[in-house]
Amino acid sequence: MRSIILGVFLLAAAGLFAQDIPSVNVKSLSGEIVNTNTFANDGKPMIISLWATWCKPCVKELDAYNDYYADWVDETGVKVFAISTDDSRSSSRVAPYVNARGWEIPVYLDENSDFKRAMNVANVPHTFLLDGKGKVVWQHTSYVEGDEEELYEKLLELSK
């Protein structure tokens, strides 16, 4: 029995390919329901970062991305999707919080953590880098200062 299960898992793992973004409904800051499988960037890389307003390292991470965002877009055409996991306790905080901080990255709400679960994320922050086909090529859990440099290197490798 055990070997069958293992075999199945290995087979399935070998099939890892193509669109890695599951189909989950999140909300845009203007209230529209958006399916995450429509996240696309014309064949250019994408960054998906899960965060929350109450999470210090998450905010630091997105502050850092925002500082470099204009440069990254110029050099690699990347698009960042910041998915807030704030629940109905703090989700109405997200829009004014983001605007006051001057973030220019698109932000979505995942109020009941459906997208977080679908991406198998245990704790925020958790960041995924996807290639132009929507395949996850790199990921990172937690954030410390300087992590954006590793992400930038991976981004450059991808854009070569």
Partner: peptide, 19 residues
């Protein structure tokens, strides 16, 4: 689905993820 996908190339490809 894995066996099905092995037979027909145009079928979607399965994906196993987790934590």
């Amino acid at each position: 689905p894995l066996m099905l996908s092995a037979q027909k190339d145009e079928r979607p490809v399965g994906r196993l993820t987790g934590n």
